[in-house]
Design a protein around this nucleic acid. Structure first.
Length: 858
DNA sequence: ATTCTGGAACTAGCG
DNA sequence: TACGCTAGTTCCAGA
């Protein structure tokens, strides 16, 4: 029998959308929230399911935030004039004052999770989108519009808390909303309040830039005093969305039903939504669309009750409208493209959240990136035109292929932009995939929004050997200010400019279950500046050698300088440097793209087991490459690099094989939990642990963790890390409570066992829901990157090691003691937390903390 | 006329 | 308070 978890996991449509049911899905505290009819989607499942269901639903619901932020929290939209939900308050109560203040009103929205990046979609999509609007022909056009509905555009994305500005907190109150993203993206709908607040924030400030001169005259309109109605970037007229004010917006929210229906109908009857949209203010459209999804759900509740997976799918497909909350993908199918028009087998409302860690291979299937993207790709801002599709190193574009799939049914390859730090892979808060269209693009695609993350769907056709050339994906940069101000967002954008392209595929099994695979690309530096200044390592000729060193290693990459230094570092668990040694660089062989170094002798030549260290290239004070892994082997051991390869791949490689790496290790881990390094365990714990810190007492510690000391975890590549995290709760001291619900995904018949497990619930939301977890949870647990709390706190997990204080509180405590809400979210550190960044990060954190504390007391 | 790009100007925050 | 630096964001201009 399958565990409840498993059930949950099988995407089988046990899920029926019934409004009435929702409450069960949510944690009690949130029940009320759910009430908002339009939004809530409940899963009606067999009684047996309820547990899992809850978990599952919850998982989707809550954890959904790419950030892992519990949907519930995220969903809050702060809108001035709307009704309030007591529940929220509850949540908020725990939360720091600051936070509470911010949110004036909370709404549970369909895309609630979207809270996270409201801007993302819309702005991006819309703009980028030109795609959306411009291409009437693309099947996607419709979709994109739809996606817009994501909260992002909506006013709600209230930024309430400015990271630093204390004032912001206060401003949180409606009228004052502080800095909303000032600009939110221009196209983002902004409320008046938000606009008013705009000025001020630092880089955020939309004003920052040069609009001044450039726009003589117009400029003022565009970015300036933003009249509420105007969109920062665009003249009101230009962008419809802008034209909408909150007032207009709100009503829509409430009435979305009608409009949504209309929109849906139109969508169905029209090839593209483009037309529809034309006459309607974008915002309006958005809103309506958004709801439309929900509407669609409402419409068919009855039919879906059957609960049979197939049925559900069918219904789903037939309706062509799918709504995905968190986990659910909002999808408006447009009949255009042959591929898209046909039902997609895997599409299910219960797909794993984007922040869940999935293996790249399972059983016979293996999802691989045949051609990696270039390490640099300058992302474009909404205010800019597209900067094109991500390219491959050798020209051309990245290529992804699914191996082992022999069916004739086409599948859909999903692509989203994920983080590239050493923490668990999750959707990147500051970047979104951007659909590229045009003559140069050969691969069809369309966008959908999933938990506030834009996901590009690309057909994987048997006739093409399940191989897709990714020439339709660009990267959009969202303003840091827009994202950071978002409630629940804990990541910081500053210096967080590295991303990975994350590919997923969901394969339906005969038994009705779905196998989900995921693979992430090598890191891609998206910042112009960073790309030009930071040394970047693409490859290293060797990744291990005897402790005696002396061997030469050829490092290839970019931005190397004659005086570049290569420093080997070993860090302790606390993140402190235990050993640091500069390698001798062969100046003679210097090239901007290659450095030949002599591997230094390890501090202890008598090691009995491989020692993982790191090295980085330094071009100067703040110009260091990401840490690269290197392993010293016991001298007496015959050089067999049996290696560490798997375990310690180069980051880049890791990314590549991320999934695969995952897979292997994870099997191994199952058997040997005990073997898990303590630190790893910590990771695990951390992963589930309190993502948010209650107050940021840790700040000091953070600082203490001197820049030089980067957390161990940082060094862990996703590959390594994941597996660890995957380890069963049983191992190590993972406490059940700490473990979110875990559901197992279908083991496919045959040999490979339960390949994928998904944590369904967000820990935070379900403090008590551990029940099924451990026991039912099979061997692996794929952790959501941000498990517990609302946001992508994931980072915290990694940080923990270095910050004693933070790590101090056991996950349990936090979890149980007070729901995630209590904690104040802390901005995550930038990607890899490279030391070079630590300074900045620490500073930022300090600032945040100080400001927060101030607010709190205020 | 657009879309891509590469470069660089501007700005805010910080020390 | 002015200055310099850093990094994010916005513009410009050429292909």
């Amino acid at each position: 029998m399958k565990s409840a978890d498993e059930e949950t996991y099988s995407y089988t449509p046990n899920i029926s959308l019934s409004l009435s049911m929702r409450s069960p899905c949510l944690p009690t505290q949130y029940h009320n929230l759910q009430t908002s009819p339009s939004i809530s989607v409940s899963v009606s499942q067999p009684s047996s399911f309820s547990p899992s269901e809850d978990m599952g639903s919850m998982g989707y619901y809550q954890s959904s935030g790419p950030n892992g932020a519990p949907a519930l929290e995220s969903p809050r939209i702060e809108i001035t004039a709307y009704g309030q939900f007591p529940e929220d308050e509850v949540e908020e109560n725990n939360a720091p004052v600051a936070k509470r203040v911010n949110s004036v009103v909370t709404l549970t929205l369909p895309s609630g999770e979207g809270y996270r990046d409201p801007s993302c979609l819309s702005p991006a999509s819309s703009i980028s989108s030109r795609s959306c609007h411009s291409e009437a022909s693309s099947y996607e056009s419709g979709y994109s519009c739809n996606y817009d509905n994501s909260p992002q555009n909506s006013p709600w994305q209230s930024p309430c808390v400015s990271p630093k500005g204390s004032s912001s907190l206060l401003s949180g109150t409606l009228g004052t909303s502080p800095r909303q993203s000032p600009t939110g993206s221009p196209r983002t709908s902004v409320t008046e309040e938000s606009w008013m607040a705009l000025r001020g924030s630092r880089s955020n400030s939309p004003c920052a830039g040069k609009r001044k001169y450039s726009f003589s005259g117009n400029a003022s309109h565009k970015y300036h005093p933003y009249s509420p109605n105007q969109s920062p970037g665009l003249s009101p007229q230009t962008s419809p969305r802008l034209s909408m004010t909150e007032d207009t917006w709100l009503p829509n929210t409430n009435q979305y039903t009608n409009s949504a229906i209309v929109a849906a109908i139109n969508a169905l009857s029209t090839d593209g939504m483009t037309d529809i949209g034309e006459g309607i203010p974008l915002k309006t459209r958005k809103t309506s669309m958004e709801h439309s999804t929900s509407v669609s759900m409402k419409i068919e509740p009855g039919g879906e009750e059957t609960g049979s997976a197939e049925l559900c799918h069918e219904d789903y497909n037939s309706s062509r409208l799918a709504f995905k909350k968190e986990g659910y993908t909002s999808f408006l199918d447009v009949p255009h493209h042959p591929y898209w028009s046909k039902p997609k087998p895997y599409i299910s409302p219960t797909l794993p959240a984007l922040d869940w860690q999935l293996p790249s291979s399972s059983g016979p299937y293996s999802l691989q990136i045949e051609v990696q993207p270039k390490s640099h790709h300058r992302a474009h801002y909404e205010t800019e035109g597209s900067r094109g599709a991500v390219k491959a190193l050798a020209g051309g574009h990245p290529i992804v292929q699914l191996h082992g799939y022999m069916e004739s049914e086409p599948l859909t390859l999903q692509l989203f932009i994920g983080t590239a730090d050493d923490r668990l892979l999750r959707p990147h808060a500051f970047y979104q995939v951007h659909r590229i269209t045009g003559k140069t693009v050969s691969t069809p695609s369309h966008e959908i929004m999933q938990a506030n993350t834009k996901v590009l769907e690309i057909p994987l056709l048997p006739e093409s050997n399940m191989r897709a050339i990714i020439d339709c994906a660009g990267i959009l940069k969202l303003r840091n200010s827009d994202i950071e101000l978002r409630k629940g967002e804990t990541d910081i954008g500053r210096k967080n400019t590295r991303v990975r392209m994350v590919f997923r595929v969901h394969i339906n099994q005969p038994n009705g279950r779905t196998v989900s695979l995921q693979v992430a690309s090598n890191p891609i530096e998206c910042s112009q500046r960073s790309a030009q200044e930071l040394p970047l390592v693409d490859r290293q000729s060797v990744d291990s050698c005897p402790a005696t060193g002396g061997e030469h290693m050829l490092i290839s990459g970019h931005n190397f300088q004659p005086d570049s230094k290569v420093v080997f570092v070993e860090k302790g668990q606390d993140g402190h440097h235990i050993w640091e040694m500069e390698a001798k660089v062969e100046k003679d062989s210097f090239k901007p793209t290659a450095l030949l170094v002599e591997i230094p002798t390890y501090r202890n030549q008598r090691i009995s087991s491989p020692v993982l260290v790191n090295f980085y290239i330094c071009n100067g004070k703040r110009k260091r490459s990401q840490s690269q892994r290197f392993t010293y082997l016991p001298c007496n051991v015959p050089t067999i690099k049996t290696e560490p390869h798997d375990d310690y791949e180069l980051p880049r490689l890791c990314a590549l094989q991320h999934s695969s790496g995952l897979t292997k290790p994870y099997y191994a881990l199952q058997a040997v939990p005990a073997m898990m390094p303590s630190e790893h365990r910590a990771c695990v714990t951390a992963a589930y642990g309190p993502q948010r810190l209650t107050a940021k007492p840790s700040s000091p510690s953070c600082s203490s963790s001197s820049p030089s000391t980067s957390p161990n975890l940082q060094d862990l590549s996703p590959t390594q890390f994941s597996p660890q995290c995957l380890s069963p709760g049983s191992n190590t001291g993972l406490q059940p409570s700490a473990i979110p619900h875990v559901s197992a995904i279908q083991p496919t018949p045959g040999r490979y066992q339960q390949p994928v497990l998904y944590p369904s619930g967000s820990a935070s939301s379900s403090p008590g829901s551990h029940p099924s977890t451990p026991s039912s949870a099979p061997e692996l647990i794929f952790t959501p990157s941000h498990s517990l709390t609302q946001s992508p706190v994931t980072g915290e997990a990694t940080e923990m090691p270095k910050v004693p204080l933070r790590s101090g509180p056991s996950p349990l405590l936090q979890e149980e003691g007070t729901p995630a809400t209590l904690a104040i979210s802390i901005k995550q550190e930038p990607q890899e937390l490279d030391q070079m960044y630590l300074d900045d990060v620490n500073e930022i954190i300090k600032n945040d903390l100080s400001s927060i504390s101030v607010h709190t007391h205020a």
